[in-house]
């Protein structure tokens, strides 16, 4: 493996007495799409800000491009692109001006910025909006513009903090498509998300974060293999009966999870599990067989759901 671009060892972040990031270790290699999956408050944004050299490390060590963010902040940021969780485009300015000012912050020559703006707006499918103000753009367009802005300096790593949170499904898929393209062209992406499908779609490798700690690590597939079964059967029973029925389901598949509204049966073969449920004389209101997802991994590792 090539020299990692980011190396974190026992990395921690405290806000006053509050431990937002609690001694995490990870490495990000060039060309990979690396994810941080975790619920709200897990410490993903805090970690991103430390990598982006805009938030000082409390303890542990962090190296980005072999540099120390505490002393080489501007040099690190010159080689990064950041798409923050909250859009912070200048809404008074036009689409073009937003990119132009950003290019100037990176000290790029004006002629180069102008050329780059056209390429990036084509990439972000905003070419016809070049002269329009930012304010009236849709959420998806603003997000794509923020990504274009983050690419203006041809960054070696693009950091995306919850890139599709708050977008409708269509805008979301359009955005994913743009990110696949970047991936295909060899970009290194660092993505945080609390959507397990987003992590599965986009990430080559990811860590699962909860309460400031990393609780699992690997490719989406290896995480599922390691921490879940191949398939899952979801059973729904009439309200109130759930707990009663649970004890009678015990022993089917390799393990079960009782959620407030349904029971999950983890089994490598869903059909056999369903047969067994019927054999035991149980009549669920609904039966759904599906493949395991990262949601199941998260549930197994933390005992909680990703999205509350």
């Amino acid at each position: 493996m090539a020299e990692p671009l980011v190396i974190a060892t026992n990395l921690s972040k405290k806000f006053g007495d509050f431990q937002a990031v609690d001694g995490i270790d990870f490495q990000i290699a060039p060309g990979e799409a690396f994810g941080f999956l975790g619920p709200n408050g897990a410490g993903k944004t805090s970690t991103m800000k430390m990598i982006a050299a805009t938030s000082p490390v409390t303890s542990g060590t962090l190296s980005v491009f072999g540099l120390d963010p505490a002393t080489a902040g501007p040099a690190i940021r010159a080689r990064l692109g950041v798409v923050p969780q909250e859009d912070n485009l200048d809404t008074e300015l036009t689409v073009e001006e937003n990119l132009f000012i950003y290019g100037r912050y990176f000290d790029l020559p004006r002629a180069e910025i102008r050329q780059r703006i056209d390429e990036l707006l084509a990439f972000a499918q905003l070419a016809d909006r070049k002269k329009s103000k930012v304010d009236p753009l849709s959420g998806g367009m603003k997000r794509r513009l923020t990504i274009a802005r983050g690419l203006i300096n041809r960054p070696e790593i693009l950091i995306l903090d919850e890139p599709t949170t708050g977008l409708d499904p269509q805008a979301r898929h359009l955005l994913w498509d743009r990110l696949y393209r970047l991936k295909r062209d060899g970009a290194t992406l660092v993505i945080t998300t609390h959507y397990m499908d987003e992590a599965e779609q986009l990430c080559d490798r990811l860590v699962i974060m909860d309460k400031g700690k990393i609780v699992g690590e690997g490719s989406p597939r290896s995480l599922i293999q390691e921490h879940s079964t191949r398939e899952v059967v979801e059973l729904r029973f009439p309200a109130g009966e759930q707990e009663l029925v649970a004890s009678r389901i015990e022993g089917i598949g390799s393990r079960i999870e009782v959620l407030p509204d349904r029971i999950l049966v983890y089994a490598d073969e869903a059909e056999k599990a369903i047969e067994e449920v019927h054999n035991r004389g149980l009549e669920p209101e609904m039966i759904l067989a599906r493949r395991s997802t990262l949601e199941d991994v998260f549930l197994h590792l933390t005992g909680r759901s990703l999205v509350d």
């Binding site: 982006a52 805009t54 902040g73 501007p74 040099a75 940021r77 010159a78 990064l80 950041v82 923050p84 909250e86 912070n88 485009l89 200048d90 809404t91 950003y102 912050y105 990176f106 000290d107 983050g150 300096n153």
Partner: peptide
């Protein structure tokens, strides 16, 4: 409000 300082600080600007 607009957070444009935060935007600028994601670049080499200090």
């Amino acid at each position: 409000w607009t957070k444009n300082y935060h935007a600028a600080l994601a670049t080499p600007i200090r």
